[in-house]
Computed example of a mutant assay.
Amino acid sequence: MSRTRARLAATGAVVVLAVTGASSVAAAAPAATAPTGSVVVHENTAFLKDSALNGVVVIPLPSATPSYDNTSGFSTTFPVTGGQVNLPAYYGNIQLGGGLLFINVFTGKSAVFKQLAFSADNWQLTGVPVDGTAPVALLDPAGDTQVTKVGATQTLTAADLQVDAEGARYVDSKLNTTFFKGGQSLGSLSLTFTAGS
């Protein structure tokens, strides 16, 4: 074999190896993606007025995003940070970013919750007190609830969002108030969850 043919053969082998290597890289499994979505808690104006008259203020903490409209009230968006859930089958758990700070401006007492989550098993929004480890049930979707699933995206809308009795007792004890009651209507909830891969 002449030198020219040998060089062409070697070059061809390199090209075949490069293409084969590129193909194996392209065929590799794509990187896993995290789940996305959010939980939006909407406080209606009636609840806001009642809580203000009683000296109770609820402040969302980062990475939650608050917004206010003078007609419809106050909303807070909590981003999905993890978890897996099947809303139509009522099981699973979604972890949320952000936290909640409750303040009684009359007494100066406060309560802080971190590690917010939505439990489809118990149909509750929960939070872990900053000085504790066990989650406390805070809010319960109620009233007219709609659950849908399209592809990997699931949604839940609840026309009513109520204070859970456990959360009411816990927050009242921390704030030294009797404002919160189990079943107390706060507003509404919407949840969107898209599974990761």
Rank of each mutant, 00 (worst) to 15 (best):
V41H: 03
T36C: 05
S63F: 05
K49N: 09
T36Y: 09
T36K: 07
V58H: 02
A26W: 12
S38F: 15
N54G: 05
A27G: 06
H42E: 10
A29Y: 05
G37P: 03
K49P: 02
N54I: 00
H42F: 11
K49G: 10
L48C: 04
P60Q: 02
S38W: 13
P60G: 03
A52P: 02
P62E: 15
T36P: 04
S23P: 02
T65W: 05
L61A: 05
S24N: 06
H42Q: 14
L61K: 07
G37A: 03
V39T: 04
A28H: 07
I59T: 15
D50E: 12
F47L: 11
P30G: 07
V40M: 08
A32K: 14
A46Y: 11
S63L: 11
K49R: 14
T45L: 13
H42W: 13
N44Y: 13
T65L: 12
V56R: 00
A64F: 02
S63T: 14
V57K: 09
V25C: 08
A29W: 05
A34H: 10
P62I: 04
E43M: 13
A34G: 05
S38P: 03
A29V: 07
N44L: 05
A28R: 13
A32E: 12
N54K: 10
A52Y: 01
T36R: 09
H42D: 07
F47S: 02
G55C: 09
P35N: 11
V57A: 12
S23A: 14
G37T: 01
V39L: 15
S38A: 13
G55A: 09
V41R: 08
A29F: 06
A27T: 05
F47H: 04
V57D: 04
L48M: 14
S63H: 07
V57S: 10
N44M: 05
T33Y: 02
V39Q: 00
A34E: 13
A31V: 13
A29D: 12
K49M: 08
V56E: 00
T45N: 12
P60Y: 00
V39I: 10
A64T: 01
P30C: 07
I59P: 03
A26Q: 06
P35R: 09
N44S: 08
